[in-house]
Computed example of a mutant assay.
Amino acid sequence: MNPVTDNVARQRFELVEEGKVAFSDYRQHGDVLILPHVEADPALRGRGTAGRLMEGTMQIVRERGLKVQPVCGYAVAWLQRHPEYADAVE
């Protein structure tokens, strides 16, 4: 599995699979990352890529001692389905 990386210049977490990119944009306000948008390349949709992106994003968030505020509908729904990350949600 490819790692999720933080593209600081573009303010987004990225996951590359099969040469295509899935990403979650973020804006940082103090210790909170606002997640306004999550997107997977159309060729990756339906394969679990966005879920792996969210899992990697949340691991990075925890490692940094941050919290997320999901705005994107996908991020909200994913976090509701994964209560193990509730401690990292604002």
Results as ranks from 00 to 15, higher is better:
Met1Tyr: 13
Met1His: 14
Met1Thr: 15
Asn2Ser: 15
Asn2Val: 06
Val4Cys: 07
Val4Ser: 03
Thr5Met: 09
Thr5Cys: 04
Asp6Cys: 12
Asn7Arg: 08
Ala9Ile: 05
Arg10Gly: 00
Arg12Gln: 13
Arg12Thr: 06
Phe13Val: 07
Glu14His: 04
Glu14Ser: 01
Glu17Met: 15
Glu18His: 12
Glu18Val: 06
Gly19Asp: 15
Gly19Asn: 13
Lys20Asp: 05
Lys20Cys: 12
Val21Lys: 08
Val21Arg: 08
Ala22Glu: 00
Ala22Thr: 14
Phe23Tyr: 10
Phe23Pro: 00
Phe23Cys: 01
Ser24Val: 15
Ser24Lys: 09
Ser24Met: 14
Ser24Leu: 12
Ser24Cys: 15
Asp25Ser: 13
Tyr26Pro: 06
Tyr26Ser: 02
Gln28Tyr: 08
His29Phe: 14
Asp31Phe: 09
Asp31Ala: 15
Val32Ala: 10
Val32His: 04
Ile34Tyr: 11
Leu35Cys: 12
His37Gly: 05
His37Cys: 05
His37Pro: 09
Val38Leu: 14
Glu39Val: 14
Glu39Trp: 10
Ala40Glu: 08
Pro42Lys: 09
Ala43Leu: 12
Ala43His: 08
Ala43Pro: 03
Leu44Ala: 08
Leu44Glu: 10
Arg45Glu: 13
Gly46Asp: 10
Gly46Pro: 08
Arg47Glu: 06
Gly51Arg: 04
Gly51Gln: 05
Gly51Phe: 03
Gly51Met: 04
Gly51Asp: 10
Arg52Ser: 13
Leu53Thr: 10
Leu53Lys: 04
Met54Thr: 13
Glu55Pro: 04
Glu55Leu: 11
Gly56Ile: 08
Gly56Val: 06
Thr57His: 02
Gln59Asn: 12
Ile60Asn: 08
Val61Gly: 06
Arg62Thr: 02
Arg64Asp: 01
Leu66Val: 11
Leu66Ala: 02
Lys67Asp: 09
Lys67Tyr: 07
Val68Ala: 00
Val68Ile: 09
Gln69Trp: 12
Gln69Pro: 02
Pro70Trp: 01
Val71Asn: 00
Cys72His: 01
Gly73Asn: 11
Gly73Val: 10
Gly73Tyr: 11
Gly73Phe: 10
Tyr74His: 11
Tyr74Cys: 09
Val76Ile: 12
Val76Gln: 07
Val76Leu: 05
Trp78Met: 03
Trp78Cys: 07
Leu79Val: 05
Leu79Ala: 00
Arg81Ser: 12
Arg81Ala: 14
Arg81Cys: 03
His82Met: 00
Pro83Lys: 07
Pro83Gly: 05
Glu84Ile: 03
Glu84Asn: 06
Tyr85Cys: 04
Tyr85Asn: 12
Ala88Gly: 06
Val89Phe: 04
Glu90Leu: 13
